[in-house]
Design a protein around this nucleic acid. Structure first.
Lengths: 341, 341
DNA sequence: ATTATTTACTACATCGATTGCGTAGCAAGA
DNA sequence: TCTTGCTACGCAATCGATGTAGTAAATAAT
């Protein structure tokens, strides 16, 4: 069992000062004019004994932890876990580790987590914010803590943000259904004020209005999707039997919807055209394949990491915050093929 | 923009010593005999200004970080992300945060990550180890760092471990197929020496041998599953047309298998019975539902967290290491219903 | 009145690094 | 000989906490 060696032990062993060792280890030997010989000697010895600096001490002193906090809804959700995987990979390339927290879309939990990680002095945050976090986000901004929001944002706060073009994409998806001969298109969404859901709703409404169609909108409460989601959709469809296609606001709503449609013994796309916002592994495997408006997760992750690194590197205060909107990708599958007249 | 207050500022403000503040904040006021009045005063003030201790300094001093490292194959895999979600939740209840890393099942990446997190002084590890990590694991044990392995383990090293009864479960699954009239049952697995895959293979072989059947085994290389997995399985089935059922060693193999079967225009379970080791969201939604031997993820997570906390709390060296084997759960669906004679 | 005990705190070293400032040693220029 | 200027390094403060050992004052015991 090896005991941990500190910079002090090294200095003692080599009969030099701690300062010298530290400077050499931080590559400042040239800068401060330490001799080649000494530098070599220290580097060689350090290598030999496999010394690893204590990151805690380092962080305490420098104020940098090289840890980024990723705050998402739920790590078990494929959308978020995929983003997490990408962000992890990308940030690793820059020497950052990532620590994450699942908010379950609950304001209180999110606030608690932000506090906790701020206490741990993470170097930055990537956050998919639930509702009602305005003041906490503002707090982070005021302390100049690097921060990127994604998937949704707050209209009232100027933050670096990465989202998809929710409105446009939704509009396109609904137009696609209209073009394929569906006449009564319903929209199943969350009862949420969050920007992404609002924009998707508006996209739906725009497409419907543009064609003078009748809107059919069902809003489910986030917390009840798992309990009564299927029942709610069954009811919605029963009450509106004329509906011949459904557009879903998120992938888990689509999954509930598929089960509901199945329960009503309706066939996809024969009786019911389906398009999902957000893709899912299931959708391409499912028979018929479920058409989806997919978010380009790698691209989103890259943009987020870039924005975050920009902030970390840019210590001045004159940087302009950026909102990046990436286009969603339409994955055409069989659940939305042309309806027979 | 509020500046961070330290324990020193508090002491100065209240005209008392740093020690006193620290003692009170750590709830030792009674123990060391500080006056009620003083205690109240400090607590009240601390509350007022919303002081948060610097965890870095605390950790540096105490050697505890209250962070646990979860090392898994891939956070984007639903098996691991679900475990991650459970572990996070459970450990949060005990005041621990979790930091994770995806090894992609690569030895080098895993070693690097373990090193990194050890440097960061995490209080413990939960690891799903790739092959060839024996010496690193031994290293952790020697340093008495709390450690739990899961999903697989090293036969040569005595560690706390949580796994499912891979051999038994696999045997049961294959027996189920046999009982349902399938005669030529293939096993699609990974070309891996890891215990979980070996045990599943042995379970398969036992069931096949017990009935005097012919084994058909296809081993895919982990790294190539995504590229050529489907083709490989198609080939395997083409070369062995008598196969009437497949047992898959992991859920992602099953997914490849389903696509392969689909490509061959075979129907499940009509032409091909299917059972998967490991469940997946897709499987219950799929038509027909895919029968699976599911791992009880919450139970596994609970056991891991328990073992880890035991180690953290048990500072003596006489603790006996535990291997916990939890039973898998058979999820009977339609992909394995009785074959017509 | 003197010593012992208790009460209520405080001083200081420490964890393992970083870093601004200081300086010894030596050669060259004045 | 003395100042100046390098070169090559060291001292000590600091980050923000913890915890041991100690002390001053008040009270109790003898």
């Amino acid at each position: 069992m090896k005991k941990k060696v500190s910079i002090k032990d090294i200095a003692a062993q080599l009969n030099i000062s701690i300062t010298t060792v530290s400077l050499i280890l931080n590559g400042k030997s040239k800068q401060v004019g330490l001799s080649e010989a000494q530098t070599e000697r220290v580097l060689k010895y350090v290598e030999e004994i496999g010394y690893k600096p204590n990151m805690l001490a380092k962080s305490l002193r420098t104020g940098k932890t090289k840890i980024i906090c990723l705050l998402i809804e739920d790590i078990a959700d494929p959308f978020f876990s995929t983003v997490a995987a990408h962000v992890e990979e990308l940030l690793n390339q820059h020497g950052y580790k990532i620590i994450y927290g699942s908010t379950k879309n609950q304001t209180a939990k999110a606030i608690e987590l932000i506090d906790l990680f701020r206490d741990r002095h993470v170097d930055g945050f990537i956050i998919c914010p639930p509702e009602g976090l305005e003041s906490d986000i503002t707090g982070l901004l005021n302390e100049h803590i690097p921060l990127v929001l994604f998937d949704r944002y707050y209209k009232a706060i100027d933050t670096d943000t990465v989202i998809v073009d929710n409105l446009e994409s939704s509009c396109k998806a609904v137009n696609y259904l209209i073009d394929h001969n569906y006449k009564n298109i319903g929209f199943v969404t969350l009862d949420s004020e969050q920007t992404q859901m609002q924009d998707r709703l508006q996209g739906y409404q725009k497409a419907i209005n543009d064609h003078g169609f009748t809107p059919y909108i069902k809003k489910l409460s986030f917390s009840k999707v798992n309990q009564s989601g299927i029942d709610d959709i069954v009811l919605f469809l029963t009450e509106n039997p004329q509906i011949d296609a459904l557009f879903f606001g998120t992938n888990y709503l689509t999954i509930k919807g598929i089960e509901a449609i199945d329960r009503l013994k309706l066939s996809i796309p024969g009786n019911m055209g389906v398009i999902s916002f957000d893709d899912h592994d299931v959708f391409k495997l499912f028979k018929p394949g479920i058409t989806a408006m997919a978010q380009p997760l790698l691209q989103i992750s890259e943009q987020m990491v870039n924005l975050l690194l920009e902030q970390i590197e840019h210590t001045g205060s004159d940087r302009k915050r950026k909102k990046i909107i990436v286009p969603a990708i339409f994955k055409e599958r069989q659940s939305s093929v042309s309806k027979a007249e």
